[in-house]
């Protein structure tokens, strides 16, 4: 199993590093000392936010992506064009400026429209991540839906299904096996990009690492652990993606 070897490898590196005290200062996160233990708990405490943030963002992105993708496949130009423009535009904007715009800019826009809500770092990060990811999700839906033979859509039409019923009962259930694996992959992208949420003050993995570095001044050890944390998360998700791909493939044969 690749997952196990990689985890073992990183653990070995970690422990080997602990031995060479002249280079590494692992004491900051040494679970055997009370101070180190407190630091570790502080750092690992970011997992919850990172995971929650990523899960909500990917769910929103899945909904948003479908809303963008469906008109993009219409035969009517006036429905297709906005979808195309959205995808091209959103794909072109880097995540960090998007994050700044949502967090600092959007409240101003809303206020000018008479809507008075402040956006906290958590929801700001979710909106920016979801919007930025939705362009990719939309393309995944499009590819999946277009892989279904046209005859299926037509058969649905001739038995009297409405567009929504056709999507719901005929097209999406078949397209899902082409859509789910790449969507799960997109989840990995979101987990990694969620690190940017630290710059607007979101208390997730990266932000906590940064804060600890400032007080302890051991960037090497703390950022190494940070990388291992992301590595773990991503490895778990990609194991899930592979399982999903296998299952979808098996379904197709059965």
């Amino acid at each position: 199993m690749r997952l196990k070897t990689l985890i073992l490898l990183s653990l070995t590196l970690f422990i080997a590093g602990c031995g060479q005290l002249n280079v590494w200062g692992w004491y900051v996160i040494d679970p055997r000392t009370p101070a180190g233990w407190i630091n570790i708990k502080f750092l690992l405490g970011g997992f919850g936010s990172t995971i929650l943030l990523s899960l909500i963002a990917v769910s929103l992105s899945m909904v948003l992506g479908l809303i963008v993708a469906l008109p993009g496949m219409s035969s009517r130009r006036w429905l297709r064009i906005p979808s195309r423009v959205y995808i091209e535009l959103v794909r072109a904007v880097p995540l960090l400026p998007m994050l700044f715009w949502v967090f600092y800019g959007l409240p101003v826009v809303l206020k000018s429209m008479g809507i008075n809500i402040s956006i906290d770092p958590f929801w700001g990060a979710i909106i920016a991540l979801a919007v930025s990811d939705s362009a990719f999700t939309a393309e995944i839906y499009r590819a999946g839906i277009q892989s279904i033979p046209k005859g299926q859509v037509e058969a649905g039409q001739t038995i009297g299904l409405t567009y929504a019923q056709n999507m719901r009962y005929v097209i999406l259930p078949q397209a899902i096996r082409r859509i789910l694996p790449p969507l799960a992959n997109q989840f990995i992208y979101i987990v990694k990009m969620s690190a940017f949420a630290s710059v607007i003050g979101m208390q997730e993995l990266t932000r906590r690492a940064n804060e600890l570095v400032v007080t302890e001044y051991r960037p090497l050890e703390i950022y190494t652990l940070l990388i291992v944390e992301y590595l773990l998360l991503v490895l778990i998700i990609s194991a899930f993606v592979r399982w999903l791909e296998r299952r979808m493939g098996a379904d197709e044969r059965g």
């Binding site: 005859g151 299926q152 058969a155 649905g156 038995i159 009297g160 009962y169 005929v170 259930p173």
Partner: peptide, 25 residues
Amino acid sequence: MVFQQFNLFPHLTVLENLTLGPIKA
């Protein structure tokens, strides 16, 4: 309408293929 390529719904059973239209439409 009967098509050359049948266009049955491969993810549904024969019975579900037949009841989808009557139930939903």
